[in-house]
Design a protein around this nucleic acid. Structure first.
Lengths: 356, 356
DNA sequence: TTCTCACATGGCATCGATGCCACATGCCTT
DNA sequence: AAGGCATGTGGCATCGATGCCATGTGAGAA
């Protein structure tokens, strides 16, 4: 009755701390059936007599059996794994995004493999290849370069881009209407009578930065306020310590007429805030500030920041949902979901002209 | 020459969008060798003639071959996957921790599978089982209940607990010296002449909360200041909307003699800060505040918060390093690393007695 | 009683990569 | 010249789960 499988002898090895993995084979043996029957009993497919089913479950429980996903993935189609690539988890924006993604996916029984590329394209591409190697059922990409997207799409992996559009065909996109949000923010300043408005951006290569800058220009145009190049600061590539701070400081110093600043994201807003403080300029009396993206600190400081609130967590879960739709029901056409941000007016903006 | 393997026919299927996976077998065929030779050529093990090696690499490149980790994991020992379980990614603390972990592990060629249990033990246990199923080489656990640790340790998976000690034997621990940090923070207040000091904690079940409360008591005792139960607020289980806020408010209102508050972590500090503001109490003149844990907002607000700075990112990478040591070199004994926090004195604390 | 059908079960091939082992090849030694 | 050794190479079993398919069992019908 106690048949010994070919691999059974390895159990006899020195008890080097942990005992060997429990396999389905052992469970079946314990329950006195064959592997296939045990598989059916646990999986709930096909016919298995009630008492046998019960016996198998008991055996599995007793031995602490945990099915091996590698084997299952190898045999079947799905790995139940989704890749998530972000560019900086220390940035609250990405952390929230990741949280939203994780929640939705784990509710749906998927595991999330996280890669943080720290903004480096090469690393993003490596991550993409790793996802491929794991046979990830799908991948979510938050701002990174084109290569990662291309690698994945080329290999037929469903991709959802979050908060950016690489332009690669065939992948879903979930993004914020940056242009609109930026326009609202700047329009708000204009309504308050500001005419000399500076803008600080991170980058202008990708949709996020480009569109926000565009929104700024559109708002100005609509109000027939001239667009001045010297009031625009693009911090792209100023990664060195203090370089970005200096650039923001220089912008403020070189344009003393400026009465309001539009910061295109949370990182930039932080810089602007600090540099204004350092110069002893009061917000909003000396200078109004609007931020694109609303984070914890903006609600803690005094005055609280007027900001364009993005539903970040929701964006993550929305993207995850979109991906699941694609994976589960095999939707073919790529979809683009644009979420609308919302301007939250708080204390960092006030009427212009209170200065002199 | 063109031998057809048993599975080759499936390539003929309808070109349903994506082409089939490229296997090692196909690469070998393309290069005109056998699977094993191709494996050796790519893996760099054993003898392969130079020109063959080259040919195989070219073929792999041309076909876009990506080895299947499932198969590799199934055959070999290691999955090159590490699990990371955190209790709330939206909390900057955990996000930073995760970032530190991710960096170290991905540098070492491991993939990080992220699970966020939102503080629910059941979910943590599910996560643990998922890690087991994936044959994770190791797991990092940030504050969660005991069950998850037990499940993993029982199955022989190396575990490193970060920022907590469940007490389960056999797992490594990386933590902050909470007691010391809390003592320093409270001692600082005492040196400034404060005698009526309140403390707010999240929980007192686990090491983090318990030790910080202990540090508070020790500092008081050392200064021969009586410990009053009513100045201690434990927010455990007050999860409902507004409940925690109300409790903090009640503490402040019920103890008007209090001239300083020690907040045991970032979440609690936020509440304290907000409630003080809401009551129109000026920091630090009306009430000094010290926080355990130093986050972005604490450096943005005015006055900047005096805080016990924890090397969070480093804690993550340290934990990851510890885990890798265990996994790679099979270290047997469990280690406990205690990192020392550092009190950063800023503007939220001042001498007592300026009030009347 | 025997034949049929519905239901239950175990054998076996499969997924893709790996590495041992047996074999083949070429070179050098005696 | 023949054996031995060093160096490459391919066949094959293996990892664990899965599910098809061919068998086995029992009940019910003719």
């Amino acid at each position: 009755m106690v048949k010994q499988g070919p691999g059974a002898s390895r159990n006899g090895g020195g008890a080097k701390g942990k005992r060997a993995r429990v396999t389905l084979h052992e469970v079946a043996q314990e329950a006195g059936t064959s592997r296939s029957t045990a598989s059916r009993a646990l999986g709930g497919h096909g016919y298995v007599a009630g008492h046998i089913k019960e016996r198998v479950h008991e055996a599995a429980q007793r031995l602490g059996y945990v099915p091996d996903v590698s084997a299952r993935t190898l045999k079947g189609r799905s790995s139940r794994v989704v890749g998530l690539l972000v560019s900086d988890l220390r940035n609250q924006f990405y952390a929230q995004l990741a949280a939203g993604v994780e929640q939705t996916l784990s509710d749906a029984g998927y595991q999330v493999v996280l890669v943080d590329d720290h903004g480096r394209e090469e690393r993003a591409a490596d991550g993409a290849r790793a996802f491929l190697a794991m046979r990830a059922d799908g991948v979510l990409l938050a701002p990174v370069g084109r290569p990662a997207t291309e690698i994945l799409v080329d290999h037929g992996t469903p991709v959802v881009e979050v908060d950016r559009r690489s332009g690669v065909r065939g992948c879903d996109v979930v993004a914020i209407d940056s242009e609109n949000g930026a326009r609202d923010a700047v329009a708000h300043l204009l309504e308050l009578g500001h005419r000399e408005i500076a803008v600080v951006v991170d980058e202008t290569k990708w949709a996020t930065g480009k569109d926000r800058l565009k929104g700024y220009r559109v708002a100005l145009r609509e109000a027939r306020v001239p667009y001045l190049r010297r009031r625009v600061l693009d911090l792209a590539l100023r990664d060195r310590d203090g370089e970005a701070e200096d650039a923001v400081g220089a912008l403020l110093d070189a344009n003393p007429e400026v009465t309001a600043v539009f910061a295109a994201n949370n990182v930039v807003a932080e810089l602007v805030w600090q540099e204004l403080k350092r110069r002893g300029r009061t917000v909003p009396d000396d200078c109004s500030v609007v931020s694109f993206d609303d984070e914890t600190w903006m609600r803690m400081v005094e005055p609280k920041l007027t900001a364009v609130r993005q539903p970040v967590f929701e964006m993550g879960s929305r993207a995850a949902t979109l991906l699941l739709e694609r994976v589960d029901s095999g939707r073919g056409r790529a979809e683009t979901h644009i979420l609308q941000p919302e301007l939250v007016v708080r204390g960092s903006t006030c009427r212009a002209g209170l200065r002199e």
